[in-house]
Amino acid sequence: MTAALVRPSGIRLHIVTGKGGTGKTTVAGGLAMALACDGKRVLLCEVEGRQGIAQLFDVAPLPYAERTVAVVPGGGEVWALAIDAEAALLEYLEMFYRLGRAGKALDRFGVIDFATTIAPGVRDVLLTGKVYEAARRRGGKDGNRVYDAVVVDAPPTGRITRFLNVNAEVAGLAKVGPIRKQADSIMTLMRSRHTAVHLVTVLEDMPVQEALDGIKALRDADLPVGRVIVNMVRRSPLDGAARGALSDGTIDAAAIEVALHKAGIDASPLLVDGLLAEGYDHLERLALQEEQRTILSGVDVPVIELPLAADGVDLGMLDDLAGILAGPGLP
């Protein structure tokens, strides 16, 4: 089953986006671990300088260098990289032009600073360029790919299309030359069947709306949409019968009082009313969640739900997430 994650679908580049606060870094981490099953090697990248991966995996802040952050059962490895635009530019210049002294001169004249802070889109070009390089890199004697899959903890939904599409814009600006060629190759990978953009959301009005807008924007830009990943879904302790009894009034203050006595709990009116209020509040939230779930089911993108972690995210929780993500239904 896990083999189905990587090979048959052929997706090698997973871009994880989502509205702020929906937990896209956690999902990206869980996805990387899921993809690393069966002895695979996966690279998890971040591009926004937040050191979110280091916090997630509880390791020291990541430098601009690839290193292992997790080993999964079966010998798979998750490597991580915090991509830094300035370092990527110098590396790029060195790799393609063997600039040496000229590269240093560029730095001395403030070109690197200029290029990475203000020049239109260069930052995004460099970040996507490094992702592209890692996704295609081959090594060793057999010339196999270094990474079986690359997962990117990408910018939020509001910026994702612009971020991924930046090379198309560069191609519009630079009509010839190596940058144009590079931009074209990156866009070819981004738009290919080897790439999938996953949108993380929660079952609330604004994040769902943003995910829908994101799907439309990605499709308008010919970028491949992978999955909608609904994060932090609350598991309800109330089953269907309990919900029904609460909403039709079978369970009222009197019924709660009786049961509390049986449970050996002092049934003060404050407690009884409080439990009832919490129950109604919960029903209201469930109804709103259901509404959002219905909206999502109307979109022709497969949806995966991930439960809310009861005690915050830790490494054990990441394993659980990976298990769910590795289940049927993932690309």
Binding site: P237, A241, A263
Partner: peptide, 29 residues
């Protein structure tokens, strides 16, 4: 909305009869 501790609430829920619909519902609450 109520101040009963989590431990007390869970212990109480454990003492209720899951086969009885009303008790099961209150245990869930």
């Amino acid at each position: 909305a109520a101040s009963l501790t989590a431990e007390e609430a869970l212990a109480g829920a454990g003492r209720l009869d899951g086969a009885d619909p009303a008790q099961a519902a209150v245990a869930a609450l």
